[in-house]
Design a protein around this nucleic acid. Structure first.
Length: 257
DNA sequence: ATGGTTGTGTTACAA
């Protein structure tokens, strides 16, 4: 089963690129972030015409997540538990062929310090609590999405210039490490333990041309999921296309049981 | 030097 995550930065602007990529790579499941539209604005017909079911958790103008799957999506849940007052559409979860898959768009958190950074850390605490609960099941569990966290300095084009950024703060990294401490495996680092594996290049300042990137899109696998890990990678070349997202897809392949 | 780019949905805001 090939599972991918892709921050599209606006589903309507990105639809041609997304459809081309679906046709050429044919992932079984795709977690999308930053669709930036309400449920009714999601181009479900076009995506269904490529053979994908859609589960959507949208929001007007900002955020918004979705899961696409060639096989039917079961037990869809939307919203991260732990704060009934949280209106931001950043979390969706569904089961495909016995694998529980969460698609998440973690808050950016800039500027630091401030209320947005406080919200990021609180959101990560809720994610840790939810993930710990999900691990109680023997069911394979995958957390896939834009985590807005660079786990280590080698995931940053220039750690000194990014030192004040919310994506690189010790508090953000500590919470990411706490997820790994629960037993999750970082799929990309499992196949490529060191070196550059960027998934994001800013639109500004010619970042792509200079390879000024960040690794912030991740797939975390529970132990029963990691046992089935066969391959993982990053579709770097999509960043060079016309009308590209500032993120590229990251993916992993789990052996069929 | 407080810049630069993109998307959404109106012309400000988030990333």
């Amino acid at each position: 089963m090939r599972i991918a995550t892709f921050n599209v930065a606006g589903i309507r602007a990105r639809l041609p690129r997304l459809l081309d990529w679906l046709d050429s790579t044919r992932p079984d499941v795709v977690c999308l972030q930053e669709i930036k539209t309400v449920d009714d604005g999601f181009p479900a017909l076009e995506i269904e015409s490529r053979g994908y079911h859609c589960a959507v958790h949208g929001q007007k103008g900002f955020n918004g997540v979705a899961i696409l799957s060639q096989r039917p999506l079961a037990d869809v849940r939307t919203g991260l538990p732990g704060d009934d007052g949280d209106e931001q559409a950043r979390f969706i979860e569904a089961t495909v062929a016995g694998v529980r898959i969460a698609g998440l768009y973690l808050p950016n958190g800039n500027p630091v310090p401030g209320p947005k950074f406080d919200y990021k850390l609180a959101w990560m605490d809720r994610l840790i609590a939810h993930a710990r609960h999900a691990l109680d099941s023997e069911q394979p569990y995958v957390l896939a999405g834009d985590f807005n966290v660079c786990p280590a300095d080698e995931d940053v084009w220039d750690p000194r210039r990014m030192a004040d950024d919310a994506l690189c703060q010790p508090e953000s990294r500590q919470r990411f490490r706490r997820l790994l401490g629960l037993g999750f495996t970082d799929a990309i680092r499992a196949v490529q333990p060191t070196g550059r594996a960027y998934t994001f290049w800013d639109y500004q300042g010619g970042a792509w041309a200079k390879d000024w990137g960040l690794r912030i899109d991740h797939l975390l696998l529970s132990p029963p999921a990691a046992d089935r890990l066969e391959a993982a990678g990053i579709d770097r070349t999509t960043r060079a296309l016309e009308k590209a997202s500032d993120h590229v897809p990251a993916w992993c392949v789990l052996r069929e049981p």
